[in-house]
């Protein structure tokens, strides 16, 4: 639709008599800004208004004013009642009162709507704070959970260490018994091969039926390996006497098997073997000592 066609619509627009498509096109045109059409439409509206009221006017000005004045008073009374929160339900008997009541209810509805909006905002704030508190509590719970896991690990390590110490104490107590025995027999072990500063002693008490080995200076056995003590006799050769592990920088004490009865002991030796032990020595020899005759 070109500009002239739109201008031709203006008289009809002034009497609100365009179809929806014409209305839409004209409104879009006016929204785009057209001072000429705006001025024309304004003039046409004045013409339409003049036409509309060209008829015989009703002589009711004072009469209508009395109605509006009554409405004004009723409205003011309703506002006053609302202000003082003293409104009471009452039966409405005429149109004026019904309108005043409608105004009162509109005011009340506005207050209720405002209260509802405030309540909604308040609820959202509370919900947000609750979510933040929940997240904070979850974070605290997670932190406590980590701390608990750490404490459990520490406790497990402490229990393991306690077990180790108990075992060491037990073995040292056994060694002490052996060492205190009146038939104590000691065999000193000297370094052979790679551990030049290593040494040890094997204590045997036939009276207490116990034998112990204490070593020092041996390097820790590699994974899957262990040190094995041998009794070497003239009849059977090497006889297994026990497995043990060495600790870096510390002496190691371990129980040992009693020497085979009825056989002549010649040597005691330590070799590095598979962790499960073997029947005959296969690895390097680290320590060796001559068993003194009783």
């Amino acid at each position: 639709m070109d500009h002239q066609e739109l201008i031709n619509l203006l008289p009809l627009a002034a009497i609100d008599w365009l179809d929806p498509d014409e209305t839409r096109q004209l409104e879009e045109h006016l929204r785009g800004g057209c001072p000429q059409c705006e001025a024309e439409l304004r003039a046409w509206r004045e013409t339409a208004a003049a036409f509309a009221v060209a008829g015989d006017p009703a002589d009711t000005g004072e009469h209508l004013w009395q109605r509006l004045e009554a409405r004004l008073h009723t409205e003011a009374a309703a506002v006053h009642s609302l202000t003082h929160a003293a409104a009471r339900p009452r039966r409405l008997t005429n149109v004026g009162e019904r309108r005043a009541s409608a105004g009162w209810w509109q005011g009340l509805a506005a207050v209720c709507a405002a209260a509802a909006v405030l309540l909604l905002v308040y609820n959202r704030i509370i919900a947000r704070q609750a979510r933040q508190a929940e997240v904070h509590q979850l974070q605290q719970l997670e932190s406590l959970s980590w701390q608990l896991n750490d404490l459990r690990s520490e406790l497990t390590a402490a229990q393991t260490e306690t077990d180790t110490l108990r075992k060491v104490l037990s073995e040292r107590a056994r060694l002490d018994r052996v060492l205190m025995a009146p038939d104590l027999q000691l065999t000193r072990l000297g370094p052979v091969g790679p551990a030049h500063n290593a040494g040890g002693v094997v204590a045997v008490s036939h009276a207490s039926g116990a034998a112990m080995i204490q070593t020092f200076g041996l390097p820790p056995a590699p994974p899957g390996k262990a040190y094995e003590l041998w009794w070497i006799t003239s009849q059977s050769g090497p006889v297994r006497a026990g497995l043990f592990h060495a600790q870096q920088g510390r002496s190691s004490v371990a129980p040992a098997s009693m020497p085979p009865a009825g056989q002549r002991l010649m040597l005691a030796a330590v070799t590095l073997e598979p962790a499960a032990g073997v029947d005959k020595p296969t690895g390097d020899m680290y320590l060796k000592g001559v068993v003194e005759r009783e």
Binding site: V53, G55, P57, A58, T60, G61, L64, W65, L68
Partner: peptide, 13 residues
């Protein structure tokens, strides 16, 4: 009210 009610009532009628 006094100025416009007459013509507006005539229009409404």
């Amino acid at each position: 009210t006094l100025r416009y009610s007459g013509m507006l009532i005539a229009l409404a009628m």
